[in-house]
Design a binder for these strands. Structure first.
Lengths: 323, 323
DNA sequence: TTGAAAGCGATACCAC
DNA sequence: GTGGTATCGCTTTCAA
């Protein structure tokens, strides 16, 4: 085309040092003129790197969930900022892991240089299996003893315990836990909740209501549950997330139940929405900004070959007006 | 490996109909055992399709902006839902178009099957140039006569006019427009604002304050501007977005200015945050859900070879308590 | 400093 | 039905 070999063109366009300045100039000029641009896919195939990080949201226990869920969006935004800052793109997938191969398919597809999984869902075993062979993998979620995959998240058990103890301290006795314990983080929060109830001698008074995470479908269920229970059935709700808590608060309004007088409600996450409910939501704060930074940081350390442990952050009680 | 040719393996794993059931079974079994997974990048290279759509946020006029901006995140979530529903992944890039090649590089990199651009920024000319040659491209933003690229967005000029007319109807006379007109949508909103002022014989009383879109850096500027103006300088603010409006409301609080009594404030977008300001924000609603669906729909029609026009949605005045 | 040629890992066409 | 083989578009040794 320009009278040189493809190899030379490649070098010229890559600003390789082992090429004369004038041939480089000439080739770049011609490339610009015919606006030629190297095909990234071919380059990826050859170099075995892509400059993209896969962000995946596994929905093992929850098929209806949308990416536009406030928690995911918050996390996603933070990850996007952090990754694009480092010059990486994000490949976003929502996956319903019907097929147990879902993760290793992503991992060895060659489309990404690393993987960030948001939430373990009910796939902790799969994550462990893949993590054993695929290094550049980090997970937002709960940590347990002996876990193979590297995770970042708050101490969910402690968070659940603090939340419940707070409700008890405020006078609640008949408490319901709203959340689906098939997800590891939720299971840990429930565990903490149980511990706090036991410590107060209230083990018998805990009800588990396995709300779906999906706001739309769960809301009707919540209304029904609260309708049946009334304020005589329960006087406290430990919600596994702010989204669930805010749904519960709205349900209470529609049933003329008042928070905190009739039922005290506490959430988890401290998303922006927690400040916008009526009454404003007491909750357990997770530092998502720090969490996202840690995820990205650990991921790149692992890409670099380093081996690094999970990162567990302390949860923090935020008292507002719903308790 | 299994005693057959690579071609046969490929067919077996792709469930091709021209292969015997038993060889298929046998090969798939072997593949599963050694957990072999085809390399997607190589496949992409050969088939020239990737199953991914690029979503890019050009920041031509605004380098500090983050993806976690509420408008982007809302739009991104809606697009992600819609695209993943159709089995496509999202490749998310934040691009600062210092290099005029930024778009065509993305387009012809072969990494994506189509491109959705969020906001024209100041790159409308580039978009037109690329759209002339690259079909699968749709843009969120403003539409102008003779525009080459296919866009989806609200009628920004009309929206700006409605917003301003509303302020005037509420008694505002000395109005400031907050927004950077280098972005096409903003320029159109400003144009509408000017028209409404002219219609009321108030052309002389319009001030333009070219706020940055970035919340952090602009806030201080807004405080300074409002401090200088005071309530005698202006009695109405037409903000180019809800984010800017909410920043203005907070600035007013810190200056002991009251909305709507001292200064009436109206936003644009009707994001969730508009309902959470104090006082709650009057604004011009854009139907983002419909917009995202339209973007995706038009994109796939264009990928299918169809030619389709821009889509302009009617803006709608939402009156709350800030005006 | 440049050219030739060997892959990267699949798919698809063409014979058999 | 299945096996060979060219090809997708680039990068990168190895020689010259």
């Amino acid at each position: 085309m320009a009278g040189v070999s493809p190899g030379t063109v490649s070098r010229a366009l890559a600003d390789s040092p082992l090429i004369s300045a004038k041939t480089r100039e000439r080739i770049q000029a011609i490339a610009r003129e015919h606006d030629f641009r190297p095909n990234a896919v071919a380059r990826n195939l050859r170099t075995q790197r892509t400059g993209a990080i896969g962000v995946v949201i596994p929905l093992g226990h929850e098929t209806g969930q949308h990416i536009s869920d406030p928690f995911f969006m918050t996390m996603l935004g933070l990850l996007a900022d952090s990754l694009t800052e480092r010059g990486y793109d994000l490949l976003l997938s929502r996956i319903i892991p019907s097929d147990p191969q879902w993760l290793s398919r992503m991992a060895s597809s060659g489309r990404v240089d690393g993987l960030i999984i948001i939430g373990q869902s009910d796939q902790a075993a799969t994550l462990d299996a893949v993590a054993a062979r695929y290094r550049p993998l980090v997970v937002w979620g709960g940590h347990v003893e002996g876990q193979v995959h590297c995770s970042v998240g708050s101490d969910n058990r402690l968070g659940g315990e603090i939340a419940t103890a707070h409700l008890i301290a405020r006078g609640a006795r008949r408490i319901a836990f709203f959340g689906d314990p098939r997800a590891r983080e939720i299971a840990q929060r429930l565990e903490g909740c149980r511990a706090a109830m036991a410590a107060a001698g209230l083990s018998h008074a805990l009800q588990l209501f396995p709300t779906h995470l999906v706001a739309d479908t769960s809301h009707a269920d919540i209304v029904r549950f609260l309708g049946e229970q009334g304020k005589d059935g329960i006087d406290g709700i430990v919600a596994a997330s702010d989204v669930i808590a805010s749904s519960a608060l709205r349900a209470m309004v529609s049933l003329s139940l008042h928070a905190p007088d009739d039922i005290r409600v506490i959430g988890y996450d401290d998303l922006p929405i927690a400040r916008q409910t009526l009454p404003r939501l007491s909750t357990i704060r997770q530092e998502l900004t720090a969490g996202a930074d840690a995820l990205v940081d650990l991921l790149f350390r692992r890409i670099g070959g380093e081996d690094c442990a999970s990162f567990v952050m302390p949860p923090k009680l935020i008292v507002r007006h719903s308790t």
